[in-house]
């Protein structure tokens, strides 16, 4: 592997070849993890199922790699990719999906509620639009404490039709908070085509009306995602306020594992998979530019497979949490008196 950035013309400013290798490795890991977890969900191993993010890998890794370690990401109901991009251990994430004691949150969170505050994942969130609110508040906290942290709040095209998202956007705009408002537009809110329920020309255009920079970004191109997020983070850190990024992306699977899809054609899925797949595109970019060799690609795939296989074994073999602890750590207020029976 060459030791300098093989991409010329500043395609990925500041990223070393080793880092680009890691970006691709993260994307491949997410792909293998999600395909595996989706299969496990169909076999009933994941209580409550899950929302696979296959196809949306570039958004997650592009965001995570454009941030500092103390920056904040708050996700959605479909956010395994963000958790893994933020370096939550795959074995602990899968164990959390299983509901095991060794999960990232001891089995109290689950697929839609993953968090590791030390790694900057301030929760994925089961309520549409809510993660953006947590990120908004994190940005407010950073502003009040005068840190130069940046927060990224994620939601989908479905969330863009909730009222709260625009309350959040407005507050971030008037207070010039260090927030990146990140919409993952994967075209469908569960089974509803977003274009059929979304007024105006685009979600980004709505945001621009609040007086903040707002743009659409090709979410299947990690270089573009990274560039946009890095620029938005620089703006935020400079005190110039929030930026709205609408990532155009696509989920290959249904809304949830096992969903029978009647609302889009197989042709449409094939089109996205064959012409715009984020993993294929970045692999091609890196090999064509000489950053990676075909052997590197093989190693990345093999490593991802091994990590995910180990994660499955870990999740399967991990113990269940102790039921007698189920009502612990609800509130320090109620734990201190005799009112809990």
């Amino acid at each position: 592997m060459p030791t300098t950035n093989g991409l010329d013309a500043g395609l990925v400013p500041g990223a070393t070849d080793a880092e680009l290798y890691d970006w691709l490795a993260d994307m491949v890991l997410i792909r293998v993890f999600e395909e595996t977890a989706d299969g496990l969900a169909l076999r009933g191993r994941i209580p409550g199922g899950m929302h696979p993010a296959i196809g949306q890998e570039a958004v997650a890794v592009g965001i995570a790699r454009a941030l500092r370690a103390d920056d904040v990401v708050a996700g959605t109901h479909r956010s395994h990719h963000h958790a893994l991009a933020k370096q939550l251990p795959p074995a602990a994430v899968l164990a959390e999906l299983y509901g095991k004691a060794t999960g990232t949150n001891g089995g109290r969170g689950g697929s839609m509620h993953l968090a590791d505050f030390d790694l900057g994942l301030w929760g994925t969130n089961g309520i549409v639009g809510a993660g953006l609110g947590i990120a908004l508040g994190a940005a407010l906290g950073a502003s009040v404490r005068c840190t130069d942290q940046v927060a990224v709040g994620l939601f989908g095209d479905g969330g863009a039709n909730t009222g709260r998202v625009w309350e959040f956007v407005n507050l971030a705009a008037i207070w010039r908070l260090p927030l990146i408002v990140a919409c993952e537009n994967n075209l469908y809110a569960v089974e509803t085509a977003s274009k059929s329920v979304t007024g105006g020309n685009s979600i980004a255009e709505r945001a621009a009306a609040f007086g903040m920079p707002a743009q659409q970004v090709d979410g299947q191109d990690i270089v573009e995602v990274h560039r946009a997020v890095r620029a938005a983070a620089d703006r935020a850190r400079a005190g110039d306020g929030p930026t709205f990024l609408e990532f155009l992306t696509y989920r290959y699977k249904g809304h949830n594992s096992g969903e029978v899809i009647r609302y889009r054609t197989e042709d449409e899925v094939t089109q996205w998979r064959t012409s715009r797949d984020p993993v294929e595109r970045f692999s091609a970019l890196l090999t064509n530019s000489g950053v990676l060799t075909p052997e590197d690609l093989t190693r990345i795939a093999d490593d991802a497979r091994a990590v995910v296989d180990a994660a499955v074994a870990f999740a399967e073999e991990s113990p269940w949490p102790d039921p007698s602890t189920a009502a612990e750590n609800v509130s320090a207020w109620s734990n201190r008196d005799g009112s809990v029976r």
């Binding site: 609110g133 947590i134 908004l136 508040g137 309350e167």
Partner: peptide, 8 residues
Amino acid sequence: ASGVGAAL
């Protein structure tokens, strides 16, 4: 929401 995030 901003109170929750700021509290965190």
